Amino acid sequence: MLVTACGSDKPADGVASAGGASVASTSASASQSGDGRQYAQCMRDHGVDIPDPDPNGQMGDLAKIDRDSQAFKTAAEACQKFLPYGGDLSKIDSKMLDQLRGFTQCLRDHGMDVPDPDPNSPSLGLDQMKNIDRDNPAVQKAFKACKDKIPGRPGQ
């Protein structure tokens, strides 16, 4: 799971949250890959109902979660240690960063205005994606078209 900004057909899925964006597949304190099941359980233990990841590491539909709520912010901070690279995406490896650049380029090719990842930012600058209208059919279409480019997917 890498950017909860990117994990299923809708933005902000598949990756937990780092500064409003989402990440999955890496944790500094635990390991590079993080632990999606522990993250999901921790979030539920802190009052945020999110599903366990599927066998491909995707978190499913997280579009209904209010990432601006105090409950989410508190839970995300408490559970950050289970995220890839401990939620600090600035520590992401170069292969994953290249994959992420391919994903954001694909989104732009499909009409979305998203930034390239910034390796000097703890959230890679992807926190800007938290305000994407996940209900917009054009956004859903772009994410669906680019889902095979989501970093951290098996086979990449």
Rank of each mutant, 00 (worst) to 15 (best):
M129P: 01
P117N: 06
N120S: 15
D116M: 11
K141F: 02
Q128Y: 05
A145M: 06
I65Y: 02
G102V: 05
A75Q: 12
D109N: 07
L83P: 06
F72Q: 06
N120Q: 12
A30N: 09
G34W: 01
Q105K: 10
A28L: 08
D118Q: 04
Y85L: 13
P55Y: 11
A75I: 12
S90A: 15
D113G: 05
A76T: 09
N136V: 09
I92Y: 02
P51T: 07
K149S: 10
A21E: 06
K91Q: 14
G57K: 00
G19Y: 11
S25K: 10
G111C: 00
A16I: 06
K149L: 15
D113T: 00
D54E: 01
P11D: 10
L83T: 13
G86Y: 05
Q32E: 14
S90I: 05
V114Q: 06
L107S: 07
L97V: 09
S31D: 14
A18T: 14
D148I: 04
A145E: 10
S27C: 11
G152L: 02
D9A: 11
A24F: 08
D135F: 07
L97T: 04
S29A: 04
S90D: 14
V23N: 13
D93I: 10
C146L: 01
D52V: 08
S90N: 15
D135W: 05
Q70S: 14
I132N: 10
I65P: 01
P137N: 07
M43F: 10
D35W: 04
Q32G: 15
L107R: 09
I132W: 02
A138C: 02
K130C: 06
K10P: 02
D45P: 05
G36W: 08
L62R: 01
